[in-house]
Computed example of a mutant assay.
Amino acid sequence: MNRTGLTARHVALLALLMACGFLVVGQLYVTIPLVRGIASRFAVDPARASLSGTAFGLAYAAGFLIFGPLSDRYGRKRMILFGLAGTTLATALVGMASGFGFLLLARAVQGLAASIFPPAALSLVTEDLPAQHRPLGVSLMSFAFLGAAPLAQLFAAGSNGELPAIMFQLAPLYAVGALGLAFTASSKRTTSAPQNDAQAARPAGLLRDPGIVAAWLAAVTVLLGFVSFYSGAQILGATIGVDLQTLRLVGLPPLLFTFAAAPLTRRYGATVTARLGLILAAAALGIAAIATPSAALLASALLSGGVALAVPGLIATVAGRTTNANRGRALAIYSFALFVGASTAPPIAQALGGLGAAPLWLLSAVLLLLAALGLTFGISRPSPSSPR
């Protein structure tokens, strides 16, 4: 038997982590099609109703900084199970909300609970899978996280549109996921060396690695460009003359490029994959600035493909330059940076959309190119965590 190959436990672990990834990250997007229903149910205007997504998103991003380091200390499996149990309860709480203020509070609690899963799951994949299969594991998780956006919206739009019913359907699924992972996730704990790992586990230790810092900064630009494109298309759609639903559908299949990231990473390295994705995304936004229907559709496909390569490439870059003692913290900061970019994109699009397509999308394109350049310089320096 090949002891370095994937076992049945590994396959089951990946399947469960992917399923939970779709369900957990999908909560970021599930209320988007439900805004009108939420507004009607709680007698608020749609602008206020959209805060149900903001409350989740802000707590979700902040939670990465809290719970990522805790997974380094208490173990990946323990934190994942705790997070899924908390998400089960918080999701049921959202379903029971009878007032709008209580709904926002429940969504914030739900976001905090959900934030435990992504960094711990990514660290678990990096540490539990055989070395040659880790890029595949990262690609699968990246696909789950990115694919959650359209799948969650499709699920919500295809339901009866009632928030409580959707939350009560989803809540038991998190509990089922936790039960499955209790049997498939490894319980091994890593102990850090008394000096080197303990020193590296501190934030200052990570900040001394220019490659990690460059990857964090690059992460901000990835979803900034991605969300800016679709937010800008919403603003400029009539001017460009492109059908928004078609634009979104065209961008779905290229997300499968996450699976191309694994062989690319194995052959050329994680940073090459990340830089290729950043450059492809920048090129897509440059094409979008032409502001014609055909250019927008081509840009949608290329942008999704670029993001699908950049996300796993950056994850693997960060994971590869860290140790078991600080990987959870490093990936938590990466996740935080990713969603900082996503959350700042809509107001930037609103501010620049009135100036036209070129100022809006070329800004993001330039930032993506600068991120690729910064990553090139950052990785030219050895990682303090790497053997010398």
Rank of each mutant, 00 (worst) to 15 (best):
T4Y: 01
R9I: 07
R9V: 11
A15P: 00
C20M: 15
G21W: 02
L23A: 14
V25M: 12
G26I: 10
Q27W: 00
L28H: 01
V30T: 05
P33G: 07
P33T: 09
R36Y: 02
D45N: 15
P46Y: 11
A47D: 07
S52F: 06
G57Q: 10
A61P: 06
I66K: 01
L70I: 06
S71V: 04
D72N: 11
Y74H: 15
R76E: 03
M79C: 13
L84I: 07
L89A: 15
A92S: 11
A97C: 09
G99M: 06
L103T: 08
L103E: 06
L105Y: 02
G111C: 09
I116R: 07
A121V: 10
L122I: 04
V125S: 02
L129Y: 03
P130D: 08
P130H: 09
H133A: 13
F143R: 11
F145E: 04
L151W: 08
A156T: 05
A156R: 08
N160M: 06
A165N: 14
Q169D: 04
L173S: 05
G180M: 03
G180H: 05
A182M: 12
T184D: 07
T191V: 14
T191D: 09
T191L: 14
P194N: 06
Q195P: 00
N196V: 12
D197A: 11
A200Y: 06
P203H: 04
L206W: 02
A214K: 08
A215C: 06
V222C: 01
S228M: 13
Y230C: 03
L236F: 04
I240Y: 04
I240R: 04
G241A: 05
L252N: 01
L255N: 02
P263Q: 12
L264W: 07
R275P: 05
G277H: 12
A282V: 10
I290P: 00
S294P: 00
S294V: 13
G306P: 06
L309M: 09
A310K: 12
V311F: 15
I315F: 12
G320I: 08
N324S: 14
G328Q: 11
A330W: 12
Y334T: 02
Y334L: 15
F336C: 11
G341F: 08
A349G: 05
G354S: 13
P359R: 02
L363Y: 08
L367V: 06
L368G: 03
F377Q: 09
G378A: 09
S386Q: 14
